[in-house]
Amino acid sequence: MKKMKELVRMTFLTKFAYMKAFWFNVLGTGASIVIYYFLWQFVFQKQNSLNGFTMVQMTTYVILSRILSSQFGGGINEELSQWIYEGKIGVELLRPISLFFTLFAKRMGEFLFFLLFKGVPISILCFLILGGTAPAGVLNFILFVLSIFISIVIMFFIEFMVGICAFYTYGYHGLMFTKSALLSILSGGIVPIFLFPKGLAAVLTYMPFAGMVSVPVNIYLGKYVLAESAKFMMLQIVWALVLCLAAHLFYGHVIKKVVVQGG
């Protein structure tokens, strides 16, 4: 636990060093919220509700989903790929704590930083300016927060597997962009999943990606009754475990191949 705290602190310090860069990142997220807000407003000029969503609820969806999916641009996959690319992975492997632990602690640090300096303030600001609804209930809000925390675990293992692909490829930027674009499409970060064709929507609801944006936001809006919320959160946990296993298997396979150039 002490190690964890230290690593989280380290991540915070690194992030603080690039605080100005972070503000531009926040502005970018703000711009994307504005785009989708106006697009949806256009839709709701002609109709009052869409699949049970009112304009206010859609605004809430846009704000929360854009902020949550802005995390896809970051993550530990870039750092991990860089380590592999530059051969620094050698040093990391020699450390007395596991690679998973180090990276997960870093990811937690990144998430807490995101929450503190982007998630909460930008949500409040957007809610005040654009208007949004409060959570459907106290319980909904608690489950919403809980489900976001579970989603970080899912995200972490996906990022880990994407990052480790650098063992096979020469550049990792392509993979990075692929990951962030795919995740934001599949998780409902761009448009709500129910707008996709029926069959696809049904499949996506049960995929791990939905757990990152769609599930928490729908819980927040009270779109799922309690039993459904519980079901989807259980599903999130199951996916987290499955991905954990997959990441460990992949790692075990790949680590035998590791080649670090000297120097």
């Binding site: 490829t169 962009f177 996709f196």
Partner: peptide
């Protein structure tokens, strides 16, 4: 990978507006 990533990067915004 580059080709796929480039297509996807543009596609995500496209998907939003088309939907």
């Amino acid at each position: 990978i580059w080709i796929i990533s480039m297509l996807l990067r543009e596609a995500s915004g496209f998907l939003g507006v088309v939907t």
